[in-house]
């Protein structure tokens, strides 16, 4: 399915426990430099190995905010063009390094109607290739309900 086909799930069809399609990313140092430039984040531990080592790391590290961007993509590509991302909370519990794939995953933990808005809470996270969840988080989205959908 290409992204342009993506259909927004109708709130009434979403259940607690539903899993979002996983999103795998293959970060390399080139992407970190691109992200540094695009986001204006010039903290040197993300591109200068000497500075990273001086700060106690074995390699340059992936920007936490880049991991947040991937987790937002996980959610926005699931909710399609008719959904709205209302909240995104991400905690950078462990560091990730470029050179190995990371997987973004999500699971619906709560659904509720509020002022005719279908609100869906999703537990999200990013795990490294060893299976460790380095970056847990939470998202809140609003989806169209059967009534509002035409």
């Amino acid at each position: 399915m290409s992204i342009t086909d993506q259909k927004t799930p109708i709130f009434d069809t979403v259940s607690v426990g539903d899993e979002l399609p996983e999103l795998v990313k293959y970060p390399d140092t080139r992407q970190l430099v691109m992200y540094a430039g695009a986001s204006q984040d010039f903290v040197a531990i993300h591109y200068d190995l000497n500075v990273a080592r001086e700060a106690g790391h074995s390699n340059v590290l992936i920007h936490g905010a880049l991991k947040s961007a991937w987790l937002s993509e996980l959610v926005t590509s699931w909710m399609g063009y008719g959904g709205r991302l209302l909240e995104l909370s991400i905690s950078y519990r462990s560091i990730d390094f470029p050179g190995s794939p990371v997987t973004c995953f999500g699971k619906v933990t709560n659904t509720r109607l509020e002022d005719d808005c279908g609100l869906v809470e999703i537990e999200i996270g990013l795990r490294n290739k060893e299976g460790l969840i380095t970056t847990p988080g939470r998202a809140l989205v609003s989806l169209p309900t059967q009534q509002t959908d035409d």
Partner: peptide
């Protein structure tokens, strides 16, 4: 201090 780490972000859109 000299070194920095990002602890996380909470966004409301």
């Amino acid at each position: 201090f000299a070194h920095i780490l990002d602890g996380g972000s909470d966004y409301k859109f």
